[in-house]
């Protein structure tokens, strides 16, 4: 069971039961849908962008513990960050959960992961990487202004 506890750390279970920023953002400037075909997880991300900065962010949707907690912690982690900082954080997070440097990753210093480090156990569960990254792929699409629904398949 120790492997399982590495995956489902208490903070993850807490965020799953009490997701933060779990609401509709009435003054959102961007809204983005994300969908994991494999398990049916759905997320809607709301962003309020101002001067290249994520002033506010929230999400709605349904999913497994990993995807819900990941979305919740993500909203806390990127709030107040610039678009570039948020994208750099995604790269660092992606490396954390896959154990691989993403192609096209910048060469600059990695931003500090902070709370996101709680997802390090995902690396040992390759089939769950998509759960952990659904919210992030959705965020990237929102920041890049893409309209279509994001799919992690």
């Amino acid at each position: 069971m120790s492997d399982l506890r590495d995956l489902y750390q208490e903070m993850i279970l807490d965020h799953q039961r009490h997701p933060r920023n779990f609401c509709v953002l009435p003054d959102a400037t961007r809204q983005q849908e994300g969908y994991n075909l494999l398990c049916g997880d759905r997320i809607t991300l709301y962003l309020k962008l101002r001067d290249n900065r994520i002033e506010n962010i929230s999400f709605q949707g349904s999913g497994c513990a990993i995807s819900t907690a990941s979305a919740s912690v993500m909203t806390e982690s990127v709030k107040g960050k610039t678009i570039e900082e948020a994208l750099a954080l995604f790269e660092a997070f992606h490396e954390l959960v896959t154990g691989q440097v993403s192609p096209g990753a910048g060469r600059g210093p990695r931003p500090s992961l902070g709370k996101l480090a709680v997802f390090s156990g995902v690396r040992e569960f390759p089939v769950r990487v998509k759960c952990a990254t659904l919210a992030w792929h959705t965020l990237r699409a929102a920041l890049e202004g893409r309209q279509e629904t994001v799919s992690t398949e």
Binding site: D3, L4, L7, C39, D41, C64, A65, I66, C131
Partner: peptide, 11 residues
């Protein structure tokens, strides 16, 4: 969530 259940049972 069934996905979480699947992971626990797999262990």
């Amino acid at each position: 969530h069934p996905h979480d259940l699947g992971t626990v049972l797999d262990q």
